[in-house]
Amino acid sequence: MTNIVVLVKQVPDTYSERKLSDSDHTLDRESADAVIDEINERSVEEALKIKEAGEGEVTVLSVGPDRATDAIRKALSMGADKAIHVSDESLHGSDMVATAKVIAAALGKVDSYDLVIAGNEASDGRGGAIPAMLAELLGVPQLTHARQVTVEGTSIKVDRETEDGITHVEASLPAVVSVTEKINEPRYPSFKGIMAAKKKPVETLTVADLGVDAGEVGLGSAWSTVLEASPKPPRTAGQRVEDEGDGGSKVAEYLVGQKLI
């Protein structure tokens, strides 16, 4: 019996134009299409695979505004059993430290878990540290950037892949895992799955329900503050030439002129 909690984040689609709001420099959620982060489909897939190999339950946990329910439903339609949605106005503008604390508190609302599975890095903030911070708060091992996960009884083995290469790590459960793009190919929700997802239980919790003080989260209480934010002037096209048999030499001349070679 392996009980798994999958962390899911709704993010602005990387194929749309992403912006920060002018007023408080937080993410402008209205400007872009909102989707479940691609990496989280892989997190859900991995959780389902582990469940299907034995026995267990997969709970989706998402912290985000009301419309994050779309991301949650997507995960449920893939086959997760139930969900917890932490949604509270006071969370607006929370930084990574506050977010990690809220997720840790929300995990306290799950009956028991053996494994927490997250994506290695969200495509919007790209902080790449929430799973590690969560492990720190929960006092459990982190097995992050996994491209392969093997659960055997109460122990877990992971092949971690980063710019340093592959590191084989192992620990005992409970543990926090994060997965990379290479972990698996996520399944498409079936029509039956989509219909079933509509009836699956989603528990909505506020910060107060978690026993977290609203004064510890949100923009005003963040451990870090954005002072300024501005769109970068777009790069402009420079010189362009047609290759007339001397294209390589022309590039070389340009690079010499720029003192690059």
């Binding site: 920060l20 963040a222 954005v226 002072l227 300024e228 501005s230 769109p231």
Partner: peptide
């Protein structure tokens, strides 16, 4: 690289 941000620890 679409946005430049200046931030500080609070």
């Amino acid at each position: 690289g679409a946005f430049s941000v200046k931030a500080k620890a609070a």
